[in-house]
């Protein structure tokens, strides 16, 4: 079965650790990959896609050494295989311009201001991964218990997301 990854790009080790801890509840269903900068992120993304797996959710910091996060998100939004990936900016320092760019050009799905409330972050991640599955039409059966079950059930009833076999 193809896996759906969560990718986290963050240069500060303590912050990365906090996100890893919060996303741990989804780990069984959605493996987490991390990167410290955009260059490493591109490598990780290429590796995941090469295996034929999916990237469902990208949590990205803005201010990092080298290229900034919003530019990477804009680029990923232009690429076929990462367009549907839900993109989240996790930052304390993105200015208005960068944020506007992220919304308009990267179709940002969600904005998380540091410091965040873990429960809200997990809820957002579940919602965004549900949207990803609905948009891509992937088999929702393995994820129904962890994600937004009500929304998936609605899609099964109304859109035939799963059919009889």
């Amino acid at each position: 079965m193809k896996k759906i990854y969560i990718l986290c790009i963050e240069d500060e080790p303590e912050v990365l650790e906090a996100i890893e801890r919060d996303m741990g509840v989804l780990e069984d269903s959605f493996p987490l990959e991390t990167a410290e900068n955009t260059t490493e992120a591109r490598q990780v993304i290429a590796e995941i896609l090469e295996q034929g797996d999916h990237i469902g959710l990208i949590l990205c910091d803005h201010v990092m050494p080298g290229e900034n996060g919003v530019d990477l998100l804009v680029e990923l939004n232009k690429q076929e295989k990462t367009r549907a990936s839900r993109k989240v900016l996790v930052t304390g320092q993105a200015g208005l311009d960068a944020t506007i760019q992220a919304v308009n050009e990267a179709e940002l799905s969600h904005y998380v201001a540091k410091p965040w409330d873990p429960e809200k972050l997990i809820a957002a991640a579940k919602l965004l991964l549900t949207e990803y599955i609905l948009e891509t039409g992937l088999d929702p059966k393995p994820y129904m218990e962890v994600l937004d079950g009500a929304r998936l059930l609605k899609a099964i009833h109304e859109k035939g997301l799963i059919s009889d076999s």
Partner: peptide, 12 residues
């Protein structure tokens, strides 16, 4: 109807 769609509706 589809067994699956019916189940989804009733469960909801």
């Amino acid at each position: 109807m589809s067994n699956t769609a019916t189940t989804a509706m009733m469960i909801t």
